[in-house]
Design a protein around this nucleic acid. Sequence first.
DNA 1: TATAGCAGTTACCCAAAGGTAAGCAAGAAA
DNA 2: TTTCTTGCTTACCTTTGGGTAACTGCTATA
Lengths: 117, 117
Amino acid sequence: MCEISEKRCLEAMLPVRDALDVLTGKWKLMILISINAGNHRFREIERSIPKITSKVLAKELKDLEEHKLITRKVYDQSPVLVEYKTTPYSDTLGNVIEELQIWGRNHRNIITGKQPI
Amino acid sequence: MCEISEKRCLEAMLPVRDALDVLTGKWKLMILISINAGNHRFREIERSIPKITSKVLAKELKDLEEHKLITRKVYDQSPVLVEYKTTPYSDTLGNVIEELQIWGRNHRNIITGKQPI
DNA sequence: TATAGCAGTTACCCAAAGGTAAGCAAGAAA
DNA sequence: TTTCTTGCTTACCTTTGGGTAACTGCTATA
């Protein structure tokens, strides 16, 4: 991960903190995955993520939009149609998400005893 | 990330949630990086991480030990000497941390305007 | 006419996370 | 002898995250 030097240690930590600042909370990565999986409407996303509430979803969608990870497009029909999409920039999170998936899967196998440490 | 299917979407989300359950909070990854960088004593770790407090550090170290990501060894001298080390298992987080670093660095360049989206 | 769906908002509340400050026992250093 | 360091713990408080439930205006469907 990093070498035995005060400065290098900080240099290893700060980018991780920067990343976590954007990705904190239980829901943000879930929402990105859901939208990326083809759920573009508010209710679609809400239904696709177990236990999420509309209040939290609305808040997190705003956050993600501010961070340029998704776009919100309103089609002026009635009733209003709103479409959420991930941005090309959010694709840069692909590796992060993939590694988290790999590690999470492995970890679950370990704590459920399917695999020794 | 994942395909347009309800089931596949869940299969993509759940491992991420499992991983986040272990890694939540502002401090856990910082602490792992610090120990890995050669800080093995409580005060060393504390000093190496800006703004962390002893209370929070003590709590997070316990969490990490429970999750088998670090070990705590007490040398029976006086005054007591305590040594924290990362486990081989924690090395499996290497890729996750690396990808977070890469993304965090890139993201900082973008928000500071050093690089366009 | 009643119900359900859309995309949220609002008010209220709770628990967990985290910060602040102080202290403790033991020994080493000044 | 007083201060400093180590490895924490305790009590208290604030902030944040998030849950519950109801409700909005609008439209399509039964």
